[in-house]
C-alpha cells in the first residue's frame, strides 16, 4: 500500500504539517510576522521620518520599507528555526516521531528550512502589500522581492537550525539574537545607510547576507537601477549552501546516537 515516496518530495509532509499547525494559530502568527514589522515601519517611518527627511535621495518611509521587508524575513525565519523548531525537537518530540517513519534528518531539516522561508515569504508579502498601499513601492519588479525574501528565510532558517542543534533551553537563543541577528540588522543598511560609517565597518558589512539582501531589495522596491545582482544573490546562496548541510550534520548529531 506504500506508494513510491520520492526523496526529493520528502520535505513536503514536514512543511505541510507546519502549515496545518500555523493555520490553527493564525492570530499570533499574523501579529508576530506582520504586525510587528509594520509597527516598525509606521513608528520609525513616520516618527523618525519627520526628522530625517530624505535618506540617500529617498523619502525615509520609502527607504525604510525595503529594509523592514528584509529584516522581517530574517527575524521571522530565525524565530521559526529556533523557538518553534526547538519545541518540535526537544519539547514535543515531533522530530523523533518523524524519525520513526521513513523520513530522515535531512528531510526534516530541509522541510523546516523551506517552512521558515515560507513564513518569511508570507511576512514579506504582507509588508510589501501595505507598503504599496502607502504608495512607497515603485515599479513592477517589486514582486521579485518575494523570491529574495523566501531565499533569505531558507538561509536564516537553516542558520537558526544550526543554533538549535546546540540548544539546551530557549534561553540559549538570546545569545544568537543579541550577538548575531541584532548587530547584523544594524549593520546591513536596514534603518540607515552605511555611507557615513567608518570604512572598516562598511567593509565588514560586505560579509553579511542581510546587507546583500537589502542591496537587492531596495532597488527592486524603489525602481532604482540594480547593481551587481549576481553578487548579492550569490552571497545569499553561498550562505544557504553552507548552512543547510551544516544544519543537517549537526541536527543528526543531536538526534541520532
Amino acid at each position: 500500500m506504500t506508494e513510491p515516496f520520492q526523496a526529493a518530495l520528502r520535505w513536503y509532509p514536514i512543511w505541510l504539517r507546519n502549515v496545518r499547525v500555523w493555520r490553527g494559530l493564525l492570530g499570533p502568527a499574523l501579529l508576530g510576522n506582520v504586525g510587528e514589522p509594520l509597527l516598525y515601519l509606521f513608528g520609525l517611518g513616520y516618527g523618525l521620518g519627520v526628522f530625517v527627511g530624505e535618506v540617500d535621495g529617498l523619502d525615509y518611509l520609502t527607504f525604510l520599507a525595503s529594509g523592514v521587508v528584509c529584516a522581517s524575513a530574517v527575524n521571522t525565519a530565525s524565530f521559526e528555526g529556533m523557538y518553534s523548531a526547538y519545541t518540535r525537537m526537544a519539547v514535543q518530540y515531533t522530530w523523533v516521531g518523524m524519525l520513526s517513519t521513513p523520513l530522515s534528518v535531512a528531510d526534516i531539516v530541509i522541510g523546516e528550512a523551506i517552512w521558515a522561508g515560507s513564513k518569511s515569504l508570507f511576512s514579506a508579502t504582507a509588508i510589501l502589500l501595505v507598503a504599496s498601499l502607502l504608495g512607497v513601492v515603485d515599479g513592477g519588479l517589486a514582486l521579485l522581492v518575494l523570491p529574495v525574501a523566501f531565499l533569505l528565510g531558507v538561509c536564516f532558517g537553516s542558520l537558526a537550525l544550526v543554533v538549535t542543534s546546540f540548544a539546551r533551553s530557549y534561553d540559549f537563543f538570546l545569545y544568537y539574537f543579541t550577538l548575531v541577528i541584532t548587530p547584523m540588522i544594524l549593520l546591513s543598511g536596514v534603518f540607515f545607510p552605511l555611507d557615513q560609517m567608518p570604512a572598516g565597518i562598511r567593509m565588514s558589512a560586505q560579509v553579511l547576507p542581510l546587507a546583500h539582501a537589502v542591496e537587492l531589495v531596495r532597488p527592486l522596491m524603489t525602481g532604482r537601477p540594480l547593481h551587481s545582482p549576481v553578487l548579492h544573490l550569490g552571497v545569499i546562496l553561498a550562505y544557504l549552501a553552507v548552512a543547510v548541510p551544516l544544519a543537517i550534520t549537526l541536527v543528526r548529531r543531536r538526534l541520532i546516537d
Binding site: 506504500t2 509532509p13 505541510l16 516521531g97 521513513p102
Partner: peptide
C-alpha cells in the same frame, strides 16, 4: 499527518 510521513496519499 503521521500517515503523510510515510508518503501515503490522503485517500489511502
Amino acid at each position: 499527518t503521521y500517515g503523510s510521513y510515510f508518503g501515503l496519499s490522503q485517500r489511502a
